[in-house]
Design a protein around this nucleic acid. Structure first.
Lengths: 208, 208
DNA sequence: CCCGGCATCAGCCAAAAGGCGGAGAGACCA
DNA sequence: TGGTCTCTCCGCCTTTTGGCTGATGCCGGG
């Protein structure tokens, strides 16, 4: 049996080096390449077609992890993409799964969990950390709390600190409509004021 | 010459393991212990009185990095504390320096920079990444934009989505005073509304 | 073809937030 | 002692926001 080949994508050298050290302890797993950005990852996968791509979502400048996943999937369906990141925001999870990620593991996971995720991904199985799975269930159970595209768009601008008037101009809708959307958003997020909505959006929904 | 002993504090195993691998390549630096939380760090430093403590600021549950630095400094002035973290938010930097950190290095720094920081800290010198130094200068140049302790406290609660009334109750001050503080905060942050203030606070000031 | 969800808009009213000027007490420093 | 900060508080007025009710057009599934 050939070992599982892995491509690491993370903008932090320490993380890559730590991951390599960890994975190196497993005889059936080999790190064949590393990349510090989405761009590098796309290039690296040409040279080293790995079985599993472990990817961070937040990567400083340039292409973000989600975009990188999409392009990787487009370029070739050979390798499975495993998200390996710090945060478990609802929005990130949904977007990653949507982009075609096979698994979602948090950086504070135990080594065994990480190994299991890599092996699972290599076999085409979905693996995710408990908190991540729990969030996904949450969403499935309460579809009433899922924002519509328009609401999400508005919320995103809201976190930029715009007033109702400004939101209206930006989205080419009347202030009245802005208010209606806001009322719906508040209900779905479980808040009463725009201030709280912004706080929730940035922290929970990951709208940075 | 004895090698420099280092204690690593970070809640992510991958980061600790990567850092250990990196520092291990330097003959004059030895990692003598690791800790995954502020509490563990305080205990570990008793067993292994290291020359330098490398500490992350964001550490999930429990004591945060700033608090850990303060307690470490109280417990013993022997070791130098070097902050090693992902973000360079103004608030974090100021608070860390205030708590007694000797240096501030970002996780995306080059290995040489990390080594230099460890050696510097061991010799009692201050070392910080360029972006960090730049932010500090910024603050020195514009002291008008630095929040007072009370203002920072209020802003922190503001990002929780509280109303003026709630802020007043929480801080045992009148709503009028809350408004006064807010006006000052808005001026310092360069915004006009509480929504924008929250956005800036969470993103720029790192008040998560 | 009707119903439900979505997006759009209106008007009314109460509450909250924000702008402005003024002011006193305590701390700290030159 | 005088000047400067910081924190505290007041009143008055305008703007913004949020709650409520109701309505229209569009689209897609049953």
């Amino acid at each position: 049996m050939k070992p599982i080949s892995v491509l690491l994508v993370d903008d932090h050298l320490v993380v890559r080096s730590g991951l390599k050290a960890l994975l190196g302890t497993q005889p059936d797993i080999t790190v064949v390449a590393e990349a510090a950005s989405g761009e590098e990852a796309l290039a690296a996968v040409q040279q080293h077609p790995a079985d599993v791509v472990m990817m961070d979502l937040a990567m400083g400048e340039g292409m973000d992890g989600i975009e990188a996943i999409k392009r990787l999937r487009l370029a070739s369906k050979q390798q499975a993409v495993l998200v390996f990141t710090t945060y478990d925001s609802d929005a990130d999870i949904v977007r990653a799964v949507d982009a075609g990620a096979m698994g979602y593991v948090l950086k504070d996971a135990a080594p065994e969990e990480i190994f299991a995720a890599v092996r699972g991904a290599a076999q085409g199985k979905s693996v995710m950390s408990a908190p991540v799975a729990s969030k996904l269930f949450q969403q499935l159970r309460n579809p009433d709390e899922v924002l519509t595209p328009r609401e999400a768009e508005l919320l995103s601008l809201l976190t930029r600190g715009l007033s109702n008037r400004e939101l209206g101009k930006r989205l080419f809708i009347s202030e009245a409509t802005v208010k209606t959307h806001l009322a719906h958003i508040y209900a779905k997020l479980g808040v009463e004021t725009r201030a709280a909505a912004i706080a929730v959006a940035i922290r929970r929904e990951g709208m940075r």
